[in-house]
């Protein structure tokens, strides 16, 4: 027999034996994996933002199949992804309303008093740990942009006056910024909510007045003037029952400091500004 044929035969036999061996092992140590997990993981956006409450997209996909977690938690993917997952699972679509993050502090460099000039590490947590932040208001935005850095979708940017600005077209409502803020300034609101107090201060009126010109002083005028009784004062801040709110904007008009804000108009104003900026 020529050496060439021997070589081919030997290598072929070796390969065949090994593959047979592997095949048996694969059968013996078979791990059952639901093929739907991979399909769903592919459908999810893959940003691993954590908005669903799981460590990442593949974790959430696993939870949907194994723990019967509702498939509508992917805020980043939105309705399309939910529908696609539902069609794989064979369940009816139940959509959650889209949420948008709002920066609940308007005390920028001009409107809020500062106690000193902070020149430390450029991080909100560092500023609060070391000095408590430069602003006199201990509830307000520190303005160093930890939320901006945390946003996986580039929806946040630092405004000119030291308060982050939300790009509502980009915001998916994943809540990464909410987690990243040491003072809970970014809050998630349903996209249809019409008014909200853009202030986080639980301090009393006198205190707020002394440190910020646009803070909520907790006077409760909005609650009294609301024709639908949709506003309730809790701990010096108004809380809005969005089911009752009819969008009359009475609270916005009557607010003495301008802490209550018309969210729908803010969005359109922002968009107009963006368009102008783009055009320019």
């Amino acid at each position: 027999m020529s050496p060439v044929i021997t070589a081919i035969l030997v290598m072929g036999a070796l390969g065949f034996c090994l593959s047979l061996f592997l095949g048996i092992a694969a059968k013996l140590f078979f791990v059952e994996v639901d093929p739907r997990i991979e399909i769903i993981a592919d459908l999810l956006p893959g940003a691993n933002c954590g908005g669903c409450g799981y460590a990442g997209c593949s974790d959430y996909a696993e939870a949907i199949i194994k723990d019967n977690v509702p498939p509508n938690k992917c805020v980043a993917g939105g309705a399309n992804v939910t529908e696609a997952i539902c069609s794989i699972l064979g369940v009816k679509v139940s959509l959650e309303e889209r949420k948008i993050v709002r920066i609940c502090c308007r005390g920028d460099n001009e409107k809020a008093k500062k106690n000193f000039i902070y020149k430390g590490a450029n991080d909100c947590y560092a500023a609060i740990l070391s000095t408590g932040g430069d602003k006199a208001c201990k509830y307000g935005c520190v303005g160093l942009g930890s939320c901006v850095k945390a946003c996986p979708f580039g929806a946040l940017s630092m405004g000119d006056n030291g308060i982050p600005v939300v790009d509502e077209t980009q915001c998916t409502g994943c809540g990464s910024c909410v987690e990243a803020c040491p003072r809970n300034i970014p809050k998630l609101f349903p996209a249809s909510q019409k008014v909200a107090p853009l202030c986080s201060s639980h301090a009393g009126g006198k205190m707020v007045k002394s440190v910020c010109s646009v803070g909520c002083i907790g006077c409760g005028i909005c609650a009294k003037k609301c024709p639908e009784k949709a506003i309730k004062m809790v701990n010096y801040l108004p809380e809005i029952d969005i089911k009752r709110c009819n969008g009359c904007l009475e609270c916005v008009k009557k607010c003495p400091t301008g802490a209550m804000v018309d969210l729908i108009n803010i969005s359109s104003n922002n968009q107009e500004e963006n368009q102008k900026a783009d055009a320019a």
Binding site: M11, L14, L18, S19, F21, L22, A25, A26, F29
Partner: peptide, 13 residues
């Protein structure tokens, strides 16, 4: 060939 098959085996196990 042998090493590749072995690694595959370790992976499966």
């Amino acid at each position: 060939l042998v090493i590749a098959a072995l690694v595959q085996l370790v992976e499966i196990i």
